[in-house]
Write a protein that binds this DNA or RNA. Structure first.
Length: 263
DNA sequence: AGTACCACCTGACGGC
DNA sequence: TGCCGTCAGGTGGTAC
C-alpha cells in the first residue's frame, strides 16, 4: 500500500540500513523498472556509498557521493526490503543492491509499475513532475492556497500529486472519513470554511499516526477506517454499512451516515 | 479545469 | 482441481 506512510517507512529502512555502506554490486533482475540504463546505474553506485535518504510525496531520493540522486518510486506494489542471507531475497526483487558488509537492499515490485532512476538534481525532478508540496510538511497556509480557486471533488484533489504530494486512494478515504466529509464534496464548498481547518488537521493527524504505526509495524488504531475499507463492512464510528463510490474511475469507500456532502 | 476511461504488468481471489 | 473473469493501493495520456 505505498502511499506517503509506506513510502516514508521505506525511506527509513534505507536510512537505517544503507547509508554510508559501501555498495559492492548492483543486480538488475528486471530492466522494466529502470528509467536509466543499467550501465549508468552501475556507474553511479558501484564502490560508492549513499549519503542520505529523503522523500517527497511518494518518491524517495537517495543522495549519491557525486551529488546525483537515486530516485525510487514504489508504484502500486513496491516495497523496500533489507536482508542478510542471499536466499532471503523477496519474490519480486527487481533491483538488488549488494553491500560490501554482506547485507542487501531489494527493490521489490510485483507489478513493475515502480521506477528506479538516476537524476542530477532532486529539485528539478520535482519541478518537471510538477509535484505539489509534500502532504506531511505542508503548512496550513500553503494548503489553503493550494485549495483556493479549485472546483472539483475533494477526493480527486487530495489524490492529485500536483496539488499536494503523497496521498493516494486509500489515505484520501481515511482522511475524509476522519473529517466526516463526503468524498464528492466540492473543493470550493470547503475552501473558505471551517471545514478546511478540520481537513488539514485530520490529514496531518492521519499521516502522523499511520507513519508511526507502519514504522513500528503495529496495526492502525481502532478508530481508523482502512481496516474496514470494503463494501458492506461496519463503520468503526457509527456501525452503519460502508459503501463503495467511484471517483474519476477509482473505487473508494465511505460511510454514508457519517460523511455528508458539504454544499 | 475537471472527469472518465484506457494502458502499463503481474498475481490473487471468487465463482462455477 | 482448473479455468475464467474481475480486481488491485501507482502514474500518464487521451478525449470530451
Amino acid at each position: 500500500m505505498p502511499e506517503l506512510p509506506e513510502v516514508e517507512t521505506a525511506r527509513r529502512v534505507i536510512e537505517a540500513q544503507a547509508i554510508n555502506q559501501t555498495i559492492a554490486r548492483v543486480e538488475v533482475r528486471n530492466e522494466k523498472v529502470l528509467e536509466v540504463s543499467p550501465q549508468k546505474l552501475w556507474g553511479n553506485l558501484t564502490d560508492r556509498t549513499f549519503e542520505a535518504a529523503e522523500r517527497h510525496g511518494k518518491y524517495i531520493f537517495v543522495k549519491l557521493e557525486n551529488g546525483r540522486w537515486l530516485v525510487l518510486h514504489l508504484g502500486m506494489t513496491g516495497v523496500i526490503e533489507n536482508y542478510d542471507a542471499p536466499e532471503n531475497a523477496p519474490d519480486h526483487a527487481r533491483v538488488i543492491i549488494h553491500f560490501a558488509s554482506g547485507t542487501h537492499l531489494a527493490f521489490d515490485n510485483q507489478r513493475m509499475f515502480g521506477e528506479v532512476a538516476i537524476v542530477d538534481a532532486k529539485d528539478s525532478f520535482i519541478q518537471e513532475k510538477a509535484l505539489g508540496p509534500d502532504a506531511f510538511s505542508i503548512t496550513k497556509d500553503l494548503f489553503r492556497k493550494r485549495l483556493s480557486n479549485r472546483r472539483g471533488m475533494i477526493k480527486s484533489m487530495l489524490m492529485d500529486q500536483q496539488v499536494l504530494a503523497g496521498i493516494g486512494n486509500v489515505y484520501s478515504d481515511e482522511i475524509l472519513f476522519q473529517v466526516r466529509i463526503h468524498p464528492h464534496s466540492k473543493v470550493n464548498n470547503i475552501a473558505e470554511t471551517e471545514h478546511l481547518d478540520a481537513l488539514y488537521d485530520q490529514m496531518e493527524s492521519v499521516l502522523e499516526t499511520a507513519v508511526n504505526c507502519r514504522v513500528k509495524q503495529k496495526p492502525l488504531p481502532q478508530h481508523f477506517f482502512i481496516p474496514h475499507r470494503r463494501e458492506g463492512a461496519n463503520c468503526p464510528h457509527c456501525d452503519g454499512k460502508i459503501e463503495r463510490i467511484t471517483t474519476s474511475g477509482r473505487n473508494g469507500y465511505f460511510c454514508p451516515s457519517c460523511q455528508k456532502e458539504i454544499s
